[in-house]
Lab assay of single mutants.
Amino acid sequence: LIVDEAINEDNSVVSLSQPKMDELQLFRGDTVLLKGKKRREAVCIVLSDDTCSDEKIRMNRVVRNNLRVRLGDVISIQPCP
């Protein structure tokens, strides 16, 4: 998924579009594992966002710094076991 700027300022939340959440079989409030660069990982709570496009994930600056990614970078997402 492509990293995009978050609207809310919550450090533990990322936003996906509802069709993408359905495709990944995620529900609102699920915890997910995000994988960024240099084997960096972060655990976040996923919320749906109608304004977010299907191929993007919204996260704020703190999460991006933790993953060592910038806007427009590609990250992977998976549900936490």
Rank of each mutant, 00 (worst) to 15 (best):
L1V: 12
L1N: 02
L1I: 15
L1R: 01
L1S: 04
I2F: 07
I2M: 07
I2D: 01
I2L: 07
I2Y: 03
I2K: 12
I2G: 03
V3Q: 01
V3L: 02
V3N: 00
D4Q: 05
D4I: 14
D4K: 04
D4Y: 03
D4C: 15
D4A: 12
E5P: 06
E5H: 05
E5F: 13
E5V: 09
E5K: 12
E5I: 10
E5W: 09
A6L: 15
A6W: 12
I7N: 05
I7F: 13
I7V: 09
I7R: 10
N8Q: 11
N8D: 15
N8E: 13
N8G: 13
E9C: 14
E9D: 14
E9F: 09
E9R: 06
D10L: 07
D10E: 06
D10W: 05
D10I: 07
D10A: 09
D10R: 06
N11L: 12
N11T: 11
N11R: 10
S12H: 08
S12Y: 07
V13C: 14
V13S: 10
V13T: 12
V13N: 04
V13Q: 07
V13L: 08
V13K: 05
V14G: 01
V14E: 00
V14L: 01
V14D: 02
V14H: 00
S15A: 11
S15H: 10
S15Q: 15
S15K: 14
S15F: 15
L16P: 01
L16Y: 01
L16M: 10
L16S: 02
S17E: 01
S17W: 01
S17V: 00
S17H: 03
Q18I: 08
Q18M: 15
Q18E: 07
Q18A: 12
Q18G: 10
Q18N: 02
Q18R: 10
P19L: 11
P19G: 14
P19C: 05
P19M: 13
K20N: 08
K20L: 13
K20G: 01
K20R: 11
K20P: 00
K20H: 03
M21K: 01
M21Y: 02
M21S: 00
M21A: 02
M21I: 07
M21G: 00
D22F: 07
D22Q: 13
L24N: 02
L24M: 04
L24W: 04
L24K: 00
Q25Y: 02
Q25A: 07
Q25G: 10
Q25M: 07
Q25E: 06
Q25K: 11
L26A: 03
L26S: 01
L26Q: 01
L26C: 03
F27D: 15
F27L: 13
F27K: 11
F27T: 15
F27C: 14
F27N: 11
F27Q: 08
F27M: 10
F27P: 04
R28K: 14
R28T: 14
R28F: 03
G29M: 08
G29K: 05
G29R: 05
G29Y: 05
D30M: 10
D30I: 02
D30G: 07
D30R: 04
D30Q: 15
T31L: 06
V32I: 11
V32S: 01
V32L: 06
V32K: 01
V32T: 01
L33W: 06
L33I: 04
L33N: 02
L33P: 00
L33G: 03
L34A: 04
L34F: 01
L34S: 01
L34K: 01
K35E: 07
K35M: 11
K35F: 04
K35D: 03
K35W: 06
K35S: 13
G36Y: 05
G36D: 04
G36N: 14
G36E: 05
K37F: 07
K37G: 09
K37D: 06
K37T: 09
K37N: 06
K38L: 13
K38A: 13
K38V: 06
K38C: 05
K38P: 13
K38N: 15
K38Q: 09
K38F: 08
R39L: 09
R39K: 10
R39F: 12
R39T: 13
R39M: 06
R40S: 09
R40L: 10
R40V: 13
R40D: 08
R40K: 03
E41T: 07
E41Y: 06
E41W: 03
E41P: 06
E41D: 07
E41A: 04
E41I: 03
E41V: 05
E41H: 06
E41F: 02
E41C: 03
E41R: 06
A42Q: 12
A42V: 09
A42T: 08
A42F: 14
A42M: 11
A42P: 01
A42D: 13
V43A: 11
V43G: 04
V43Y: 15
V43N: 05
V43E: 14
V43W: 13
V43T: 09
C44Q: 15
C44T: 09
C44W: 01
C44L: 11
C44E: 02
I45T: 15
I45S: 11
I45E: 14
I45V: 13
V46P: 03
V46F: 02
V46T: 06
V46W: 01
V46M: 03
V46Y: 00
L47N: 13
L47I: 10
L47K: 10
L47W: 09
L47G: 13
L47E: 14
S48L: 13
S48Y: 06
S48T: 12
D49L: 00
D49A: 06
D49R: 02
D49Q: 04
D49Y: 01
D49T: 12
D49S: 14
D49N: 04
D50T: 10
D50F: 05
D50I: 09
D50S: 12
D50Y: 04
D50Q: 04
D50H: 11
T51R: 08
T51L: 07
T51G: 11
T51H: 02
T51I: 05
C52W: 02
C52V: 09
C52Q: 11
S53C: 10
S53Q: 13
S53L: 11
S53I: 05
S53N: 14
D54A: 08
D54W: 04
D54E: 09
D54V: 11
E55Y: 10
E55M: 06
E55G: 13
E55R: 12
E55L: 12
E55S: 13
E55H: 10
E55V: 09
E55A: 11
K56V: 11
K56D: 04
K56S: 14
K56W: 03
I57E: 01
I57R: 00
I57C: 02
I57V: 11
I57F: 00
I57M: 05
R58D: 00
R58V: 02
R58P: 00
R58E: 03
M59L: 13
M59W: 00
N60G: 09
N60Y: 01
N60L: 01
N60P: 10
N60C: 05
N60V: 03
R61D: 11
R61H: 06
V62M: 13
V62W: 11
V62R: 11
V62S: 14
V63L: 12
V63F: 09
V63Q: 09
V63M: 08
V63I: 13
R64S: 04
R64E: 02
R64T: 03
R64K: 03
R64Y: 03
N65E: 11
N65I: 03
N65H: 10
N65G: 09
N65A: 11
N65D: 13
N65R: 10
N66P: 00
N66H: 03
N66E: 14
N66W: 04
R68N: 07
R68S: 15
V69H: 00
V69D: 00
R70H: 06
R70D: 08
R70V: 08
R70C: 15
R70F: 05
L71V: 10
L71D: 08
L71A: 15
L71W: 06
G72Q: 03
G72M: 03
G72C: 03
G72W: 03
G72Y: 04
D73R: 02
D73W: 03
V74C: 10
V74T: 10
V74A: 13
V74E: 14
V74I: 07
I75Q: 00
I75D: 01
S76M: 12
S76A: 10
S76R: 10
I77L: 13
I77F: 04
I77K: 00
I77Q: 00
I77R: 00
Q78N: 14
Q78E: 12
Q78R: 09
Q78F: 03
P79C: 08
P79K: 15
P79L: 10
P79G: 08
P79Q: 15
C80F: 09
C80G: 14
C80N: 15
C80M: 14
P81C: 04
